[in-house]
């Protein structure tokens, strides 16, 4: 899940760019129909999750199951409100914390790698590329050993740090790619005006990089929100746990109330939906910026 974002974002960009110059063939309604059917098949599990979340417990084991939420119940969502809110709040805090850590670390690094030409910068970029490939279970085990000795198992800052390791390499690479595109003339102009590198970074580079900041933030938030492996290893015994553990425990304890489980799953999917809607807009903005630059 974590690291797929780089290509996707780029592809969205490419897609958006070419859509504008594509000419539309005349008779395409049947292709659209095939497209709609394919999308429906692909999204069926998501429809099913929503359908089950609205199914009455008494109908849950019915054979064949109800294909549509006729006579829906909202008891699953009531269960979410009464039982899962603390988990959702924890995930929100962990997600926001991860975003802050990721931005603070990766934006300056991206700026340095893109514009300040550090010796050994190429090697450092290579390290970030490799670090994205380390399986989560290995990081989790290492963190577990360290946190146990430090006594910070089951703590939110510990979980935030661990979750940020998913997003920081991505953030550095994305910021480097985007900040490389900022014209050097802008930097030299600031320098001539007597601005320090820090000043240039804060008042010129960061405002221009708004879109990449939003993109990195959204992905960092989504990955922290979705994280299961760090949560289950580093926060498995904690009093405050994220929503992924909330759902996991729900599945374990409670094999009957699948409407509540699926209702929780629907609520846990909201950030992904928001990301899809919001990030697309920002990606589109990135495309126009690129078009002007070229």
């Amino acid at each position: 899940m974590t690291t797929f974002a780089t290509p996707s974002r780029a592809a969205l960009t490419a897609a958006g760019a070419s859509a504008s110059k594509a000419r539309r063939p005349r008779k395409t309604w049947y292709i659209t129909l095939i497209g709609v059917v394919l999308t429906a098949v692909m999204l069926f599990p998501i429809y099913w999750m929503i359908n089950v979340s609205l199914t009455k417990t008494t109908d849950m084991r019915k054979s064949p199951p109800n294909w549509f939420p006729i006579d829906p119940t909202f008891s699953g969502y009531q269960a979410v409100v009464s039982q899962q809110l603390p988990y959702l709040a924890t995930s929100l805090i962990v997600g926001l914390g991860t975003v802050i850590v990721t931005l603070v670390l990766s934006a300056p690094a991206g700026y340095a790698l893109a514009k300040l030409r550090p010796r050994g910068g190429g090697a450092l970029s290579f390290v970030f590329l490799i670090s994205q490939m380390i399986p989560g279970i290995i990081m989790a085990m290492g963190f577990y050993a360290i946190y146990l000795n430090l006594g910070i198992l089951n703590s939110l800052p510990g979980l935030i740090i661990a979750d940020s390791t998913i997003a920081v390499p991505f953030g550095v690479l994305l910021f480097t790619a985007f900040m490389s595109a900022i014209p050097d003339e802008l930097m030299s102009a600031a320098k001539i005006d007597g601005a320090s590198s820090w000043r240039t970074f804060v008042s010129i580079v960061l405002p221009i990089s708004r879109n990449s900041i939003v993109t990195v933030s959204l992905f960092a938030f989504l990955w922290a929100w979705s994280d299961f492996i760090f949560a289950s290893t580093l926060d498995g015994g904690g009093k405050i746990q994220p929503i992924t553990l909330g759902i996991y425990k729900y599945i374990g304890n409670n094999n009957q109330e699948w409407n509540s489980i699926m209702a929780t799953a629907v609520v846990a999917s909201i950030p992904a939906a928001v990301l899809l809607i919001v990030a697309q807009r920002y990606v589109a903005a990135g495309v126009t910026a690129g078009a002007v630059k070229d």
Binding site: M42, I247, Y248, L276
Partner: peptide, 18 residues
């Protein structure tokens, strides 16, 4: 089509389980 890939894995995995 991107939706399955953005969902938290616990959501996809539990939906498929059911």
């Amino acid at each position: 089509f991107l939706v399955p890939w953005l969902l938290p894995l616990i959501v996809s995995a539990s939906t498929w389980s059911w």
